[in-house]
Write a protein that binds this DNA or RNA. Structure first.
Lengths: 163, 163
DNA sequence: ACAATATATGTAGGTACCTACATTGATGGC
DNA sequence: GCCATCAATGTAGGTACCTACATATATTGT
């Protein structure tokens, strides 16, 4: 079984989703390995949330979800695990009892300080990869825009109607 | 909560994994919606496997895994569900009893014929998106190459060592 | 005032992958 | 010939998301 070609690569557009997934899996996995190498118990899905709270102070589930363009469910689930580990706690909003803003605990603040170097290293490495790939990121922006303009589903329905 | 900016986009390299994941989730999800819209019970993860068998005839789990650059485990799990639905069946290899090549059943062949139009529509739509994004795919190739050259983990460890 | 509706959050269960480990069968050295 | 090792596949359990649905609280119309 010597060196088979990469068919997802050959397939072009047909495998676009698979390729994006494969790359994101790899990046998430290697990020996890980096934390493990330093003996830090950290889940990559926490990154966006902690990053938001560090920038903006306590934020609600809904606000974090729309900032990160994820569902509120993902944020809610991540909060539960962050809370279980003691890195965040929930505040109460005097005006609206439905809102329970997420805030860092002292332990959470210590974690963000401990991780600052690794986050910088990951960010630098990603920037390096982006440069070696010929500045991929602006094209991801444009793909986001193209999908916002017209969804893949809409496009595919149109193509399927008049093939 | 009017129109928040997309922070994963603003974050540049730091959120590269998250962005790739978000895009792949979206593409997978909308593909699933397309199949559902036509009342066809099809899981997107089956695509690469059926595509390989259609091109090459019966293939083993291991060969499909290396062609698609996925683990044998993913292929093995997908086989189980494809087999349960009656779309594929397992052959025996006279020379090596460990190998159990996966082959299409007549029902599986009928499925591939039924889906040919939708697959073409998805492929055309992805090509259209790729063009609107400024020809993203060659840059994904280069990102794959850059990671093969030196992993994100290696790079991040180096950056972390001398910040 | 209060029902109808909208918003914030949560739970259950699903998806497409993964790592770690187990099992079975082939193969090479002695 | 047979044991050690390697190769092909499978199982258990995990990850970072998701949709569909449920609950609690606020807001709006009459």
């Amino acid at each position: 079984m010597s060196e088979q070609p990469d068919y997802s690569r050959l397939a072009g557009g047909a495998a676009l989703g698979a390729r994006l997934r494969r790359l994101s899996e790899r990046i998430d996995r290697e990020s996890a390995q980096l934390y493990a190498a330093f003996g830090i118990e950290f889940e990559q899905r926490w990154f966006g949330i902690l990053n938001q709270i560090m920038r903006n102070g306590p934020m609600t589930v809904g606000d974090i979800a729309s900032a990160l363009r994820l569902t509120h469910v993902s944020i809610s689930q991540a909060r539960r695990s962050l809370e279980a580990k003691g890195f965040v706690h929930s505040l109460t909003d005097g005006k609206d009892a439905r809102r329970r803003p997420i805030a860092l605990t002292p332990k959470g603040e210590a974690l963000t300080r401990e991780l600052a170097g690794l986050w910088q290293a990951l960010s630098d490495s990603a920037a390096e990869l982006n440069a070696e790939a010929g500045d991929l990121i602006p094209l991801l922006d444009r793909l986001d825009d193209a999908l916002a303009e017209r969804s893949l589903l809409d496009r595919a329905l149109a193509h399927a109607a008049r093939p």
